[in-house]
Amino acid sequence: MIEFQNLKKVYESGGQQVAALNGIDLKINKGEIFGVIGFSGAGKSSLIRCVNLLERPTSGSVIVDGHDLTSMSVKEVRGIKKNIGMVFQHFNLLNSKTVFANVAMPLTLAKVSKDAIKKRVQELLEFVGLADKADYYPDQLSGGQKQRIGIARALATQPSILLCDEATSALDPQTTSSILQLLKKINKEYNITILIITHEMAVIREICDRVAVIESGKIIEEGTVFNVFSSPKTETAKNFVSSVMNDQIPDSIKNIIQKHDGMQKVYRINFVGSTAGQPLLSELAKQFEIHINVLFGTITELQGTPFGNLIVEFQGSDKEIIRALTYINQKKISIKEVTAHAS
């Protein structure tokens, strides 16, 4: 478990004070995958680096598994760090050492016996699928392989927390996906709490349970991935969501709406969970005197729940359309009218 209490971090830069973290209150539960998303400079990097005190907060507390790190001695913190693995954007492997020696490093530092190290490293390399690369050097590996080694190294001391600082940002989409699957597997098999910092909403959608949006050093929105994706509240969250949800109406469709503006009614319907399984449109067409024209739509899966977004045009008399809308509302399906200027 990780808890931030009124966490602040102020940098001194050229006589000016810059607040990177401006009072963060956040609780990350044991065993969950928690994502923090924000634009560059929002403070997300400072936040994750406070969890293992790579950066010391200016004020506030960082509580890890019940220990307040800010009140501990340097030596005590070093001990706690063995319980917190960290994976980096640029892998940060030692180029002068073999894959084996890199993964073994945290154990060597902890003065574990040679035999035990050998066994554990073998196990870890098998887990990340690179058992045959033990004697390679990092510069002989691809980015994805390097990150797997970084992950194996982070897991060496059997931590209960794994911090991922933009762990997939230097990788191509396919490799990103395979690394995310590996993180998911770690979370499931070892019940390790994972905190992920990213600027890619796709990463959050793919593996996170909960998400927080950070802006100007503050958490501006927080919730389950499903809730934040299906109904983002802040402008920033909406931007992030639309970056992966593909729910913006394309220009060609907008042109059609514009041309006929006033002559027809265009609506956005959001299906969530079980409602996505109902044959709503055909029911509407049968029960009411209207024609339905689907202009645009996407259906994605969020945390195992289907989430649909349809832009439809209803053609018919106002009276029939209003009846149809009432019917939809009774079903507790979200529907909003789209005008030519809206998105």
């Binding site: 913190v77 760090k81 980096f88 640029h90 892998f91 940060n92 030692l94 945290p106 060597t108 530092l109």
Partner: peptide, 28 residues
């Protein structure tokens, strides 16, 4: 690479360990 030193710090290495096991081997 400062990132290597950061990784060492994240592992809980002591300053002496960082010098002897990270800095010097990487710069050898």
């Amino acid at each position: 690479d400062p990132g290597v030193i950061e990784a060492a710090e994240a592992m809980g290495a002591t300053p002496w360990q960082i010098i002897s096991k990270f800095l010097i081997p990487e710069a050898l």
